[in-house]
Amino acid sequence: MKVSIYRYNPETDREPYMKEYEVDTGGKDLMVLDVLNLVKEQDDSLVYRRSCREGVCGSDGMNINGKNGLACITPLSLAAPGVLDGRKALILRPLPGLPVVRDLVVDMTMFYNQYEKVQPYLQNNTPAPAIERLQSPADREKIDGLYECILCACCSTSCPSFWWNPDKFLGPAALLQSYRFLADSRDQATDERLARMDDPFSLFRCRGIMNCVSVCPKGLNPTRAIGHIREMLLERAV
C-alpha cells in the first residue's frame, strides 16, 4: 500500500514536503501506528511520538486522511475508504494549528499551557478526614465522560476557534478539564474557576462547531461540557 507522510526536519529542510512510501502490510487491517513502525524500519529518520499503543496515553494524535485521531487505535479500514485495499494512499500529517518540531511531532506547549490555566487539580480546603471523602455514586457519575481525557489534543487542534486564538481561547480539552473539577462534588473552588473564565475569549470563543466531539478518540463531549460551564457562568451573572 501507499503511504504519504508529512516530512520536515528543521536542520536540513527549508520547507516541509510530503514523502511517499510503499509498505507491505500483507493485506492485513493494521493500525496506522503499525504502518508507521513499518515505515520507520525502512527509514529511521521518520519521527512520531508513541507509547502505550492502545489508545490510553495520548501520544500519537495526528491528522489521518484529513481527520485527527490516534494512530494506534485507528485501523486502516477506518482511516479512509479505499486505504485498506490500496486504492487510496494513507495520508499522515501532524496535528494542525500547532508548530511542527519535526515530521509528525508538534510542539504541544500552547496546548499544555491552556490546560494548566484551568488549575486542573482538586481544591478543597476543609481538613481531610481520616478516611476518604465520601461521594455518592450519583455525584461520582457526574465526572464520567470528563476525567477520562488523555490530553491527546485531537480536539483542540481541530477547533477553528483554537487555531485563531490558541493563547486566549482555552480550547475544548482544557474546558473539559475545567468542567471535570466544577462537576466534582468534592471541589470547592467553583466561584474562582468561573471568574477566571468570565471574559470574551476563554470560553465564549467556542462557536459550537462540534469538531471537537467528532474527533475525540475517547468519545468525550467537550461541547456539552462547555455548554454546562456557559450555563453556570450565565447563572452567576444574574
Partner: peptide
Amino acid sequence: TVFELEHMGLPFSRTEEGRI
C-alpha cells in the same frame, strides 16, 4: 497512602455508602 490519593482528587468508583 490511598486515602491521600483520594484527597488529592483521584476519581475512585464508589459504593452506595459513598466509600471507595
